[in-house]
């Protein structure tokens, strides 16, 4: 174990022609941490992740991934990285087991391919052609290939786009299992509930910059925000919701009609954040 973070980004910039995709982005990901890069489409999530993967050149800034500059890396560095991209249309004629088994060969300390397939829940499909998989199964195959080499750091770029709610829950369970194994994970998503469910830390990216970086519970001052108490005849913001409810209970002489108590949701905070930035 070292004190060097798994990922360290300072002042990252990338432009395409006149379009600024990443505009001075700073981010750290500690060893073993699960960080969600949350932002709307076009915020710069994919560009940032591709630069970290060494798949894209940057214009400016310092980037270190597992202690190396991803623009100048070797195969030993690659062997410690797992990548799950957005849109793979390859491997169609192979079976799931052939595809995962093939990629296992590249890694010196790889998992048993069948174990990787089991991990993502594709055991029943192991002998089926990749062509026959559904979208969700296909992404799980991508994850199996991404983790078959036992990466220290896994990049997932919008892994659940297009999933139905049930498939998304299954996928989250898979990511949690990988995190429990000690894998550092940086995932991008535009689903709030995904960031909240999976991440130790959420970095909100907007216009190529990080506009907030905190745990899901404290993002945007969520933990300290005043609580809103609503009931049939009124609404009040308070720092002492228990006291207010006690008062209301006395006033109504029992059950308070239509009582709800809420903190601002992550969605409220997020919409505030991206609303401010844009």
């Amino acid at each position: 174990m070292t004190d060097t973070p798994a990922v360290r980004i300072r002042g990252l910039r990338k432009t395409y022609g006149d379009t600024v995709a990443v505009a001075g982005l700073d981010l750290d990901v500690a060893d073993g941490e699960v960080v969600a890069l949350l932002g709307p489409n076009g915020a710069g999530k994919t560009t940032t992740i591709e630069i970290l993967e060494g798949h894209r050149d940057r214009d400016a800034g310092e980037v270190s991934v597992l202690g190396h500059d991803p623009a100048r890396t070797d195969l030993d560095w690659r062997a410690q990285i797992g990548i799950v991209t957005q849109d793979g249309g390859d491997l169609l004629e192979l079976t799931v087991r052939e595809a995962v088994g093939h990629f296992a060969h590249y890694y010196p300390r790889h998992r048993d391919p069948d174990q990787a397939i089991d991990l993502v829940g594709l055991t029943e499909k192991a002998t089926e052609r990749v062509r026959t998989l559904s979208g969700g199964q296909r992404r799980r195959l991508d994850v199996a290939i991404g983790v078959v080499g036992r990466p220290r750091l896994l990049f997932l770029d919008e892994p659940t786009t297009g999933f139905d709610p049930q498939a998304r829950r299954q996928f989250w369970a898979l990511i949690r299992r990988l995190a429990d194994e000690g894998c550092t994970i940086l995932l991008s998503t535009h689903y709030l509930e995904e960031a909240e469910a999976l991440a130790d830390r959420v970095a909100v990216i907007m216009g190529g910059r990080i506009v907030a970086d905190a745990t899901p519970a404290t993002l945007g001052g969520r933990a300290t925000a005043r609580t809103v108490v609503r009931w049939a005849d009124g609404r009040q913001e308070t720092d002492d919701p228990a006291g207010l409810i006690a008062t209301l209970t006395r006033r109504y002489g029992g059950t308070v009609p239509g009582l709800t108590v809420s903190r601002p949701s992550l969605e409220d905070i997020y919409l505030d954040l991206i609303g401010d930035a844009s």
């Binding site: 798949h55 195969l75 690659r78 991209t85 793979g88 390859d90 990629f103 890694y107 290939i145």
Partner: peptide, 8 residues
Amino acid sequence: RRLRGAPM
């Protein structure tokens, strides 16, 4: 792209 992401 996938192959370039692997240590190949």
